[in-house]
Simulated scan of single mutants.
Amino acid sequence: MQAQSRLLPLLRSPLVGELLAWLFLHPDEQYSVTELAHRLHVSQSTISREVDRLSEADVVREERRGNLRLLRANIDNPLARPLGELLALTYGPVAVLGELLAAVGGVDEAYVYGSWAARYAGEQGPPPRDIDVLIVGAADEDDLADAARAAEQRLGREVNVHQVSARAWGSGNDPFLTSVRARPLYPIDLSER
């Protein structure tokens, strides 16, 4: 069994937080169990078990099309708005940053570091006040600033972007990057491209 969520201790596990954040921060979309399993890097049976619980609680709606099980957030549930706000503040980076950064040319890799990554990794401490994002590549600074502002709007907190070249990231000579690597890092999935 996974460790208890440090980002939102009300949840059984970080996976439940990621799953709910993805659904509630994309409320107009439907996703198959297969898509969600791939996106969250777990088995389809794991997603199915979690969705069974969430569907039974009327937090998630499902639609069947043959063997395909399509899922979406139940935005008619009275908990939907406050739950969506909590999820944006806690697991939102998982659901939001990848799609925003995938649209920015020149981003080779991206990571969340700092307090959010530490809480995600299970380290105790106060809730993160901001989101620190490391970009590896040669993206346009204005495009990154636009993506950070869009993320701030959706996540309800400051998003700080720090960009380094692929050469600097690979060299290991920079004291800042050495300290970033020594602490938890959460890789951002850029596969939305």
Score class of each variant (00 low, 15 high):
residue 1 M to E: 05
residue 3 A to H: 15
residue 4 Q to Y: 11
residue 4 Q to L: 15
residue 6 R to M: 15
residue 10 L to V: 12
residue 11 L to G: 04
residue 13 S to C: 11
residue 15 L to A: 06
residue 15 L to S: 01
residue 17 G to P: 03
residue 18 E to H: 15
residue 18 E to M: 15
residue 20 L to Y: 01
residue 21 A to M: 01
residue 22 W to V: 04
residue 23 L to R: 00
residue 24 F to V: 05
residue 26 H to A: 08
residue 30 Q to V: 06
residue 30 Q to P: 04
residue 31 Y to W: 09
residue 34 T to Y: 12
residue 35 E to P: 04
residue 35 E to G: 02
residue 35 E to M: 04
residue 37 A to C: 12
residue 39 R to V: 02
residue 40 L to Y: 10
residue 40 L to G: 06
residue 41 H to W: 14
residue 43 S to N: 07
residue 44 Q to F: 11
residue 48 S to I: 09
residue 48 S to E: 05
residue 51 V to F: 02
residue 52 D to S: 13
residue 53 R to F: 10
residue 56 E to Y: 03
residue 57 A to R: 06
residue 57 A to F: 04
residue 58 D to N: 15
residue 58 D to K: 13
residue 59 V to Y: 04
residue 63 E to W: 04
residue 64 R to H: 12
residue 65 R to S: 09
residue 66 G to R: 08
residue 67 N to W: 12
residue 67 N to T: 14
residue 69 R to W: 06
residue 70 L to D: 00
residue 70 L to Q: 00
residue 74 N to W: 00
residue 75 I to L: 13
residue 76 D to K: 09
residue 76 D to M: 11
residue 76 D to E: 15
residue 77 N to Y: 04
residue 78 P to F: 04
residue 83 L to H: 00
residue 83 L to E: 07
residue 85 E to L: 12
residue 85 E to V: 09
residue 87 L to P: 01
residue 88 A to T: 02
residue 90 T to C: 08
residue 91 Y to M: 08
residue 91 Y to W: 15
residue 91 Y to H: 15
residue 93 P to F: 13
residue 94 V to F: 09
residue 94 V to W: 05
residue 94 V to I: 15
residue 95 A to R: 01
residue 95 A to T: 02
residue 96 V to M: 05
residue 97 L to P: 03
residue 97 L to T: 00
residue 98 G to M: 09
residue 98 G to S: 14
residue 102 A to Y: 03
residue 102 A to Q: 00
residue 103 A to L: 01
residue 104 V to I: 07
residue 104 V to M: 02
residue 106 G to H: 14
residue 107 V to S: 07
residue 108 D to Y: 07
residue 110 A to E: 06
residue 110 A to F: 07
residue 113 Y to Q: 08
residue 113 Y to R: 09
residue 114 G to L: 08
residue 115 S to D: 14
residue 115 S to Y: 11
residue 118 A to D: 07
residue 118 A to W: 05
residue 118 A to P: 10
residue 119 R to G: 13
residue 120 Y to D: 09
residue 121 A to W: 08
residue 125 G to P: 11
residue 127 P to F: 05
residue 127 P to T: 08
residue 130 D to V: 07
residue 132 D to K: 01
residue 132 D to A: 10
residue 134 L to Y: 07
residue 134 L to T: 12
residue 136 V to L: 07
residue 136 V to I: 09
residue 139 A to Q: 06
residue 139 A to V: 09
residue 140 D to P: 09
residue 141 E to P: 15
residue 143 D to A: 15
residue 146 D to C: 10
residue 147 A to F: 03
residue 148 A to R: 01
residue 152 E to W: 00
residue 153 Q to K: 05
residue 155 L to C: 01
residue 156 G to Q: 03
residue 156 G to M: 00
residue 156 G to T: 04
residue 157 R to G: 04
residue 160 N to K: 12
residue 162 H to Q: 14
residue 163 Q to L: 09
residue 165 S to I: 14
residue 166 A to P: 09
residue 168 A to K: 14
residue 169 W to N: 07
residue 169 W to R: 10
residue 169 W to K: 04
residue 174 D to P: 02
residue 174 D to N: 10
residue 174 D to I: 00
residue 175 P to L: 08
residue 175 P to R: 00
residue 175 P to H: 05
residue 176 F to C: 00
residue 177 L to Y: 05
residue 178 T to C: 12
residue 179 S to W: 11
residue 181 R to P: 11
residue 182 A to E: 13
residue 182 A to N: 13
residue 182 A to T: 12
residue 183 R to H: 13
residue 183 R to C: 12
residue 186 Y to Q: 05
residue 186 Y to A: 10
residue 187 P to H: 13
residue 189 D to N: 13
residue 189 D to K: 06
residue 189 D to W: 03
